[in-house]
Design a binder for these strands. Structure first.
Lengths: 354, 354
DNA sequence: TTGAAAGCGATACCAC
DNA sequence: GTGGTATCGCTTTCAA
């Protein structure tokens, strides 16, 4: 991106430009004010060409004084870069999209790139309208994101004139796709339960046909033993209750460590255990998945859980589209980003070394 | 907005443009392909000027065939309209912002307007960077939204060269500000409890210094009686527990109807009641506020609650910035939008007439 | 070292 | 009816 003049860097909180916020001042006005030609102004501000250092400085000063900011539309028309990207999502609750979005925005704002948010529900027509609108506006790239890694958005993103990066949703074969490493996350969780001294582990999770569920289950079994029980249900609190119900009604041995497929299930499990007089974490350790702050922190006791680093994933996605937009080469393929363990109280061992 | 040719309307899912998605075709290419001049093409597509009906039709057909879509940057440069607006928010969890955003987007997508989402946390510097970036990109307007009606965003939005609408956050004196009608919502809730035959009402809510809390409390007292107890605490589940604790430990009479300031508190209350052997809704009716789906639906029993119609609020905000951007006159001031009651099971009376 | 002029893609006015 | 031309705000040769 352009250097030297008003970039997106946060340090330059010039108070001066505030003053003239109400009016749009063009490079023409600035040229007149500085008594030079527009081309000189342009070069001065962009640190291009050769020119007297003091002329350059003077122009920059006057630019700041009168609050000049170049028109990005005009700039984009010429450069074929709009410094704009589009974020397509079908995640209505934003549980996954928001952190991703925050990461993207954070990574790109300092590069002067803004993000169009397009919520397309699961409506192909709506998706097309949004994609077309973004292309019309000459976005430099598109990030597609969803709530499920094994489903794709209801829009055809192949052969667009701009690069597309997929985050947390299924991408085209030869595209860049980012996802969190479910197996890694599940290993972290299982491992932590074992480190807490738990022997009888159970995994209570979502539907088997979710790839993320089955990958986590596989990783769980790899550590906990191939016949450690895995219970598939739905991704809801109620399923946590039901699962505990089943286990406690059954004749099998009762677990002392439970790895839940998400924080909602974990909350249901924790509540159900408490209602049965079991103490968490004294009698049973419970670990969740997602680190959905508002759920994990409100559970009694607060949930130890796995964080998928969605914000980092967003940052990575942002930087990758940016690279792609700038013509840099990026190796296509699926990238799995590591998860991290967040220790609260539902497993015990808060101050133990990991 | 422009009529006749490729507008944002969803019906025209032209399969043809799909074909040429990979290339950007300019009006020049199209003119050449049609054997006419660019000005003729422009008039044909925009239904301007007088011209042979068949020429117009032919040009439109060819345009669709080769997948021509006008460059919005060029268009915007000339018209001073970018068909883009900015949404500024400091609501990190998106609980309030997401529905508002969905409403805005839904209202505007058919007008060809896209939305920049700018999450500024509570960082003034970051806010300024985002505002400047949006202004550079010539947004037609800005919607500022937050999580609290009585606090403003940490950015100075006065005297911007574009219209600003405030939604769910405090606005400049002479601006348009939208908010939900807290008093109305509280009345709906209190009224519903009374309709359920409840006599001993209590209001458990957030901090008194939140205007929304105090307005709701006032409305509550107006219906429930001026000495109906109002308990101020924090907006969290834990406070629901604590409040019930206080009441049950105290010597005062116990309520049979509880109006909670939000769904989290309501959930805490419902849980706490259940733990004390009280049945909801048989013994006590509990009503929440926010209709935060994932919380309200997962509570046992599912919460009857007040919906602030945030999506409608977003739609209204979108249409208002649009009007303002088009130079139409909009009366400034604070507009309170009505709430609605959402009946689930925590109050009883699900099938009773409202 | 500086400035004039062409051009990015589209629209609108005014000739023809 | 149709097409040339100026224009929007900016960048970039190329002359001076």
């Amino acid at each position: 991106m352009r250097k030297g003049f008003l970039t997106g860097h946060r340090e330059e909180g010039s108070l001066i430009t505030q003053r003239n916020r109400g009016v749009r001042v063009t490079i023409h006005d600035l040229a007149k004010a500085a008594g030079v030609s527009v081309s000189t102004v342009s070069k001065a501000l962009n640190d291009n060409g050769r020119m007297a250092a003091d002329t350059r400085a003077r122009i920059k000063r006057i630019a700041a004084e009168i609050g000049f900011r170049p028109n990005a539309l005009a700039r984009g028309l010429l450069s074929n870069r709009s410094f704009t990207i589009g974020l397509l999502t079908n995640d209505t609750y934003g549980r996954f999209t928001l952190p991703v979005m925050a990461g993207i925005s954070e990574a790109l704002v300092d590069h002067g790139v803004s993000v169009f948010l397009c919520a397309i529900e699961d409506d192909p027509a709506l998706g097309k309208v949004h994609v077309d609108a973004m292309l019309d506006k000459q976005v430099d790239g598109i990030i597609a994101t969803g709530k499920r890694v094994d489903r794709s958005l209801p829009v055809d993103l192949s052969s667009l004139p701009v690069p597309v990066v997929y985050a947390f949703t299924q991408g085209e074969p030869d595209s860049v796709t980012l996802t969190s490493d479910d197996a890694h996350g599940a290993s972290l969780a299982t491992d932590w339960l074992m480190k807490m001294g738990r022997k009888r582990l159970v995994h209570i999770t979502g539907p088997e046909d979710f790839v993320s569920a089955s990958e986590r289950a596989d990783a769980f079994r790899k550590l906990a033993g191939s016949n450690a029980p895995v219970m598939h249900g739905i991704w809801a609190e109620g399923w946590g209750h039901d699962a505990i119900d089943q286990i406690w009604k059954g004749s099998g041995e009762r677990p002392d460590g439970i790895f839940c497929g998400n924080d909602q299930i974990a909350r249901g499990v924790a509540d159900a255990l408490r209602e049965r007089g079991m103490k968490v974490p004294e009698d049973v350790s419970v670990i969740g998945f997602d680190n959905w702050e508002i759920m994990a922190a409100q559970t009694r006791p607060p949930l130890t859980t796995i964080d998928m680093n969605l914000k980092e994933l967003g940052k990575a996605a942002g930087l990758i589209v940016l690279a792609l937009a700038e013509g840099r080469v990026v190796e296509p393929g699926l990238r799995r980003l590591p998860c991290k363990l967040v220790v609260r109280q539902s497993c015990g061992g808060g101050n133990q070394k990991i």
